[in-house]
Design a protein around this nucleic acid. Structure first.
Lengths: 389, 389
DNA sequence: CTAGACCGCTAATGCGGTTTAGCGCTGGCA
DNA sequence: TGCCAGCGCTAAACCGCATTAGCGGTCTAG
């Protein structure tokens, strides 16, 4: 069991002072070129790596960032989303020699407690915040603590999205959804009151946004183009910001196409296969059942597909199904599900880059992820002819 | 942005020295009862938490453990296994105020590099090692570094398992599979050469074991009891220790029941839905196709089920399917899949407890997880009558 | 020719804890 | 009465690194 070398060992072997070693290894001025080279070589020989605790103690940098996942245990199921996301995040962090602290907790309160603890213990330099919510207590807390953060998956631009370019920076904007009114959508019973944090001070929280509105428009283009006029969106948790945004977008897109708001609507679930199946059963039993279902995740889509099979409703002949988020799941079921494909790992990379940039002193900013792409497979087709619009 | 209080602040407010504060807050003797109480109260008021870097620097404890997941990006798919495992791990770690460093890398070499770095940087006090392999370089490395470790998912007792009790400790044994010969199984072309690390020195590596042999026996009990005589095991990665163990167990159990080794066998895959589907297609096209398939994970089982549907082979009437590891997946497909249910979170808890125990100075040990339970659903039934045994 | 800037380096200090040595005091015992 | 043990506490050293002040020497500008 080898003893770990310190700069003192290096200093001794190189015949210089410890400070010289520190300068040399941190690319600081104060040592000549060849002394630097010599010190470097010795450090290499000894296999020296900085003790992260010591560095954190003096340098005020822990070299780690945190990610908390607040999900009730039974909900963290089959989704591939998180591992993909984390995998993308790591790719960027590893290159910057930054560690990732990961924690799974039950709810947002516990999540906030973790942030407080990490902050007090100086464990992390910043955090990545997932699952932005309506009335989200986290940005305020993080701002109060002065803990740099990047929120991941903030809803993107409103429904009347510009058909503009993809990734861009917009350093001026805020992490909490700006109170820009969405045309044609008034606050409804479904969506909780908008966040009352219209502060305009430069927030330490930047974000990576997903173009949920654009994606929903795409889905509707597809289904409407096929002839569907009765569409139900089996949404996820109503407390999540992107759920609300998707529901809003559905309304806007339906209105734009003159569709009956009674026939194009959302129902909310908790993302679980159980609720996805139950919701499917419910809407399919209605007198004027929808001819197309849009599911907010892959698990529910598959569950819904199984319900249809069980009820003897052929997909896609009498029912079309779209899954929001692709995964192996969508490809292995029969029929293969039409799905909204996102580059989740890329999303993670973007978030990690933004966080590192903020940690390096850059201005907090907003990055847009690429627009998702609708991959048409075997679960969508024109609605049955005898169905009136 | 609040300043974080230090013990100096506490000392000042409580009118004592910093050392007294340290003693008081760490339950060390050297302070009177009421001084201790006073200090505690002040610390509480100030919301003090120890700076983890400072503590690590003097105490030689970082208060964090690591977990590396070595999976090529495309493989980390839909499995719920890891999030469940991590969730269980966290439950225990959080209670002990220990952080978890998590990293996803491409392969085992990168994993070893991460261990080396963590060790050199003193980032972690110990690590949890998943996916034990045949010829696994990791235990040796960790032993060399002196980094305490617990391997998760080491194969349990050999096929002639005692029907004994569940969890137990066996402090003497090793993390690498002991070279105990499995009766009736000779090294085959399929299984790589057994690990050549029969060292008997007390290793710093303890482990949590899964009773793969017992589980396989159960699966065979079920299928054989239903009348199946041609069974193919669609296994996972052949480099993983538990894959080898399952394949061995299958042979042993087949032999015990006098089944033809040509008709009861394993084929290996990479766990992906694609290879699972391909393997299914291949074995079902053979002249004497199997009447039952056992899949090493849920994703492949679902993929296989879809292939059967596509080929017009009704499940379970003409083909039975068993999934190793249950998840929402197995319950949402149609028909619902018979699956081997494991308490994955409990598995994680066990591992975390073992690691904490080792870190606290306890002897390295081996813990057995509960025997998995076979949950019989709609995908298994007697084989078609006209099939000869 | 000298004052000051700059170079290359060392000594010393601090980060926020833990830990050891040692101090003054009290109490029990010979 | 004197001595020592033990209690409750403080001072100081230390962990491994970063950083600042400062030193002797050379180079340049005035």
């Amino acid at each position: 069991m080898a003893r770990r070398p310190t700069i003192k060992d290096i200093a001794r072997r190189a015949g210089v002072s410890e400070s010289a070693v520190s300068f040399a290894l941190n690319d600081r001025p104060g040592v000549s070129k060849d002394t630097r080279a010599r010190i470097r070589r010795v450090a290499e020989e000894l296999g020296w790596q900085a003790n992260s605790a010591a560095r954190a103690l003096s340098g005020e940098r822990s070299g780690a960032v945190g990610l908390v996942l607040a999900r009730p245990a039974h909900t963290l199921g089959v989704e591939s989303f998180f591992l993909q996301l984390v995998s993308g995040i790591q790719e960027v962090l590893a290159a910057a020699r930054t560690a990732l602290l990961f924690q799974v907790v039950e709810d947002v309160d516990a999540e906030c407690a973790v942030y407080r603890r990490w902050w007090a213990e100086r464990r992390v330099d910043g955090v990545l915040v997932v699952d932005p919510r309506t009335r989200d207590p986290r940005p305020a807390l993080l701002a109060e603590l002065g803990l740099p953060a990047v929120t991941i998956g903030e809803p993107g631009p409103p429904a009347e999205h510009a058909k503009g370019p993809g990734p861009m920076r917009d350093p001026g904007s805020m992490s909490v959804p700006a109170p820009s009114p969405v045309p044609g959508s008034s606050p409804t019973a479904l969506s909780p009151a908008p966040s009352s944090a219209p502060s305009s001070a430069p927030s330490p929280v930047s974000s990576v946004r997903a173009d949920d509105a654009g994606a929903m428009a795409q889905v509707l283009d597809h289904l409407h183009g096929l002839g569907h006029r009765r569409i139900v969106h089996i949404a996820g948790l109503p407390g999540l910001a992107h759920t609300v945004r998707r529901m809003e977008s559905l309304r806007v897109e339906a209105a734009r196409r003159g569709l009956d708001p009674g026939h194009v609507r959302s129902v909310v679930t908790d993302y679980s296969d159980a609720e996805g199946a139950a919701a499917t059963r419910r809407v399919l039993a209605e007198p004027q059942a929808p001819t197309a279902l849009v599911y907010d995740n892959d698990v529910m889509a598959v569950a819904g597909s199984a319900v249809a099979a069980e009820l003897g409703i052929p997909v896609p002949d009498r029912l079309s199904i779209v899954a929001w988020d692709d995964s192996a799941l969508c490809r292995v079921t029969h029929p293969r599900l039409t799905a909204l494909v996102r580059d989740t790992a890329g999303f993670g990379r973007l978030a990690a880059e933004e966080l590192l940039s903020v940690l390096a002193g850059g201005p907090p900013g907003v990055r847009e992820s690429e627009r998702p792409r609708l991959e048409s497979r075997d679960s969508t087709a024109p609605p049955p002819a005898h169905t009136d619009s």
